[in-house]
Write a protein that binds this DNA or RNA. Structure first.
Length: 652
DNA sequence: AGCACGCCGACT
DNA sequence: GTCGGCGTGCTC
C-alpha cells in the first residue's frame, strides 16, 4: 500500500476522497472503499504524488473488484455531470450499485447461442435495416419513423442480430418507456433472444441489480433491455443503442436526479462512436428538427399492407352540445349506440382518474385541498375517499363542509373516469363496462386478467386514462371517444401542445385495426385549435410545422435554451427569500435572461414551498457553464433544496 | 446526501 | 435536570 489515489465515490457533493491503493492498482479500476462505517464502490480517478489530507488520515481501500471502467465510461460520467450541472458524485450514484459483494464466477456466452426466431423482413423493413447498418461502425443518430404496426421491432431484431454476429463481445442496449416493460410487452422480445436478454427496470431487486451490473461489466450480458436508468450500466463494449418511443416523456426523469435519458443516450452513443436509433410513430419536435437539419438520419418505415387503416376522425364542438349529459355529447352517444348494436367495442378516453377533480361547498365556496400540497383533493367514490394525486394524503368523503360546517352543501365538480362510467352505465344499462387506470393495475396478474377480458370480448365499453393509449391492440375496438381533448390544450408548458397531440394521436390509433375502419370522436370546446385541426385532417406535418413556428416565434426550445432552478423549503419565507437572493447574484450577461423567482405552479408539494427561477439563453450559449459559475457563489442552507433542470419539460 | 455531534426550549 | 428538536460539519 504505497500509492495514493483520488477516488470517485458515489456520494452527492463529496465526489472525490483520497485513499491508499496497492501497487498493482490502476486508474479507472473499480474498488471497494471504507467510508465512515460503510463500504462503497468507487473508481480510481487519478494517482496522486501527495494528498492534501495528512497521510495518517488516509485509509487503504478494502478491495480491488478486478474490473475497470472503460475510458468511454469515464468520459460519459464527466459529460453527464457537466451537461446536467450535477456534482460528479451524483452521477457516480447512478452508475454504481448500492450493494458490495464479490461477484460470482461469470461465464461468457458464445455468439451462436444468442439469436433465434427472427421473422423475415418486408421490403420497407429491409431497406430501413440496411440503411441503419450503413452506420454500424460510427456515431450516427437515426430517426426511425413508423406507425404502430409498421414492424419496428423486427427491424430492431434484424439490426441487433447482424451487429452481434459481426462484433464479438459487443453489447446492445434497448431502452423502453417504463410502462412497456411489463410481462406481455417483453414476451415477443424474449422469444427472439431467449435467455440472453437482461431486463433492467425499477422493479428488480437490489441483489438482481448487483448481479446484472457485474454481468454487464464482465461483458457477459450482451442484450440489455431497460428503463432509462439502464443507460448508466457499465458497458465495456457498447455497439448500438435503441430508444423505443423516443418522444415518450418518461425518459425525462423529473424527480430526484433530473436528466433526459434520451439525450444522455445520444451523448453516450457519440462518445462510444456507435449508432443510436430513435424510434417513434410521433417523434418529438426536437428530434424532427434535428432530422430536418441533417444532424440525424431519417429512416421511414411504411405501414404494412393490410395493417392499420387511419380512422375517420370527427370533431365534436362541445359549445354546441345539446345532450342531457354534460360530458357525453349526443353525437358520441349515438355512435356508441350504433357500435354496441353491431357488437363492436368502444373505448372512452379521459386522462383524469377518480370521480371528480374538485369537491366544492355550494354555501361557502370551500374547496377541499391537500394538507401538505397546494392541490385539490380528487374524489374517488368507489373507495369513498378524497385523495391527493401528488402525495399519499387521503380522507374519507366528508358529510359536512370543513369551512361552514353545513350539511348537504358539497358538490362534485367536473368528471373523472369513474363519473363517466356512472353516466355510461345509466345510459347503456345492458353494456358490459370496464374502467382501467394505473391504479387498477397494482398487480401484474390483474393486468393480464383485464387484457384477456377485453380480447375475449367480455367488454363492450372500455373507459380509461392514458394507460389505454399505449401498446395494446384490441381487434374488435372500432370507436374511440375522447371525452375532453382540452386537458392539456392552452396550457403554457413548453411541451404541452406536443404531448397533447402525441397522446390524442396515439389514442385515436386504437380505433379500427385489421378489416374494420375505425371512428374517433374528439370532444372539445376549441374546435379551431391547431392540434385539433391537425388530428381531424390526419395531418401530422401540419401540426409539426405550426408547432415549430410557434416555438420559433416565441423563442422557445429548440430555438433557445432553457434551464429551470427550483428552490424548495418547508418554510415559505425562507424559500422565497433565498430564491430572491439567488437571482440577485446572477451574473449579468446580454445573452441570458433570468426570470423570477415565482411561486411554482404547484406552489407547495409534500409540505415544501416551491419557487422557480427560469434561465433562458440563445441557442448556442453554454447555459451550463453560466449556471455553474453563478451557483458556485452560493451556499444552499441545509434546510432548503436547490435543483437545476437543464432543458426542462415543465417551467411553471 | 447521510450521519454524528452539540447547543437551547418544554416537560416530568 | 434531561429529552430531543434541528443547525452545523465531516466523510479520505
Amino acid at each position: 500500500m504505497h500509492k495514493i489515489a483520488r477516488i470517485l465515490v458515489p456520494i452527492n457533493h463529496i465526489d472525490f476522497l483520497d485513499y491508499l491503493i496497492p501497487e498493482e492498482a490502476n486508474i479507472n479500476d473499480f474498488v471497494e472503499v471504507p467510508i465512515k462505517n460503510k463500504k462503497l464502490i468507487g473508481i480510481i480517478w487519478s494517482i496522486l504524488d501527495v494528498s492534501e489530507v495528512p497521510i495518517e488520515k488516509l485509509k487503504p481501500i478494502s478491495n480491488l473488484l478486478g474490473y475497470s471502467a472503460s475510458a468511454n465510461m469515464r468520459i460519459f460520467l464527466e459529460k453527464v455531470a457537466e451537461y446536467n450541472i450535477f456534482p460528479i458524485g451524483k452521477v457516480a450514484k447512478l452508475v454504481i450499485p448500492a450493494i458490495v459483494k464479490t461477484p460470482k464466477k461469470i461465464r461468457i456466452t458464445k455468439n451462436s447461442e444468442l439469436i433465434h426466431n427472427i421473422k423475415p423482413l418486408n421490403e420497407s423493413q429491409e431497406k430501413a435495416a440496411k440503411k441503419i447498418l450503413e452506420y454500424k461502425d460510427t456515431y450516427k443518430a437515426i430517426l426511425l419513423e413508423g406507425v404502430t404496426g409498421s414492424g419496428k421491432t423486427e427491424v430492431y431484431f434484424h439490426v441487433i442480430s447482424k451487429i452481434l454476429l459481426e462484433k464479438p463481445n459487443s453489447q446492445i442496449l434497448l431502452l423502453l418507456p417504463e410502462i412497456l416493460l411489463t410481462a406481455q410487452g417483453l414476451t415477443r422480445i424474449t422469444k427472439a433472444f431467449g435467455d440472453n436478454i437482461y431486463v433492467w427496470h425499477s422493479g428488480i431487486t437490489p441483489a438482481q441489480k448487483r448481479d446484472m451490473w457485474f454481468e454487464v461489466l464482465s461483458g457477459k450480458a450482451r442484450i440489455i433491455i431497460g428503463a432509462r436508468s439502464a443507460l448508466f450500466l457499465p458497458f465495456q463494449n457498447l455497439s448500438l443503442i435503441i430508444i423505443d418511443e423516443e418522444h415518450d416523456s418518461s425518459y425525462k426523469q423529473e424527480e430526484g436526479v433530473v436528466y433526459n435519458a434520451r439525450d444522455m443516450a445520444v451523448m453516450r452513443a457519440h462518445i462510444e462512436s456507435i449508432p443510436i436509433i430513435l424510434a417513434s410513430a410521433t417523434p418529438s419536435i426536437e428530434t424532427i428538427l434535428n432530422a430536418k437539419l441533417g444532424k440525424y438520419e431519417k429512416v421511414h418505415l411504411a405501414a404494412r399492407f393490410g395493417g392499420a387503416v387511419m380512422p375517420d376522425i370527427k370533431i365534436v364542438d362541445m359549445t354546441q352540445n345539446k345532450s342531457e349529459s354534460k360530458w357525453l355529447s349526443d353525437r358520441l352517444l349515438e355512435a356508441v349506440k350504433a357500435k354496441l348494436a353491431k357488437k363492436e367495442q368502444v373505448m372512452l378516453f379521459l386522462n383524469r382518474k377518480g370521480y371528480a377533480p374538485l369537491t366544492l361547498c355550494r354555501a361557502c365556496s370551500y374547496r377541499f385541498m391537500c394538507d401538505v400540497c397546494s392541490s385539490w383533493l380528487v374524489e374517488h367514490r368507489k373507495e369513498r375517499k378524497l385523495k391527493c394525486h401528488h402525495c399519499g394524503y387521503k380522507i374519507p368523503i366528508p358529510k359536512v363542509c370543513f369551512g361552514c360546517k353545513e350539511e348537504n352543501t358539497l358538490v362534485a365538480l367536473g368528471p373523472g373516469v369513474e363519473r363517466i362510467e356512472e353516466e355510461i352505465k345509466k345510459i347503456f344499462n345492458e353494456a358490459r363496462v370496464l374502467t382501467l387506470t394505473k391504479d387498477s393495475l397494482k398487480k401484474s396478474s390483474d393486468n393480464d386478467e383485464y387484457l384477456n377480458k377485453i380480447l375475449d370480448n367480455e367488454v363492450d365499453i372500455l373507459i380509461g386514462t392514458q394507460l389505454l393509449a399505449k401498446g395494446h391492440h384490441f381487434p374488435r375496438l372500432t370507436l374511440v371517444g375522447v371525452i375532453d381533448a382540452d386537458v392539456g390544450i392552452g396550457g403554457a408548458e413548453i411541451k404541452g401542445a406536443e404531448r397533447t397531440y402525441q397522446l390524442l394521436h396515439q389514442v385515436s390509433g386504437r380505433a379500427g385495426r385489421e378489416q374494420i375502419k375505425g371512428e374517433v370522436y374528439i370532444q372539445t370546446y376549441y374546435p379551431k385549435n391547431h392540434i385539433i385541426l391537425s388530428l381531424k385532417d390526419n395531418n401530422p406535418e401540419h401540426f409539426i410545422e405550426s408547432e415549430i413556428s410557434v416555438r420559433e416565434q416565441s423563442e422557445m426550445p429548440p430555438f433557445a435554451r432553457l434551464a429551470s432552478i427550483l428552490i424548495t423549503g418547508s418554510k415559505l419565507e425562507q424559500a422565497e427569500n433565498f430564491a430572491r437572493k439567488v437571482v440577485s447574484v446572477a451574473p449579468l450577461y446580454e445573452k441570458v435572461q433570468v426570470l423570477g423567482p415565482v411561486s411554482a405552479s404547484l406552489s407547495r408539494l409534500k409540505g415544501r414551498y416551491r419557487f422557480r427561477i427560469l434561465v433562458k439563453s440563445e441557442k448556442n450559449f453554454n447555459i451550463q457553464h453560466y449556471i455553474r459559475s453563478w451557483l458556485e457563489q452560493i451556499k444552499v442552507p441545509s434546510y432548503l433544496h436547490l435543483k437545476v433542470d437543464v432543458d426542462p419539460y415543465n417551467c411553471l
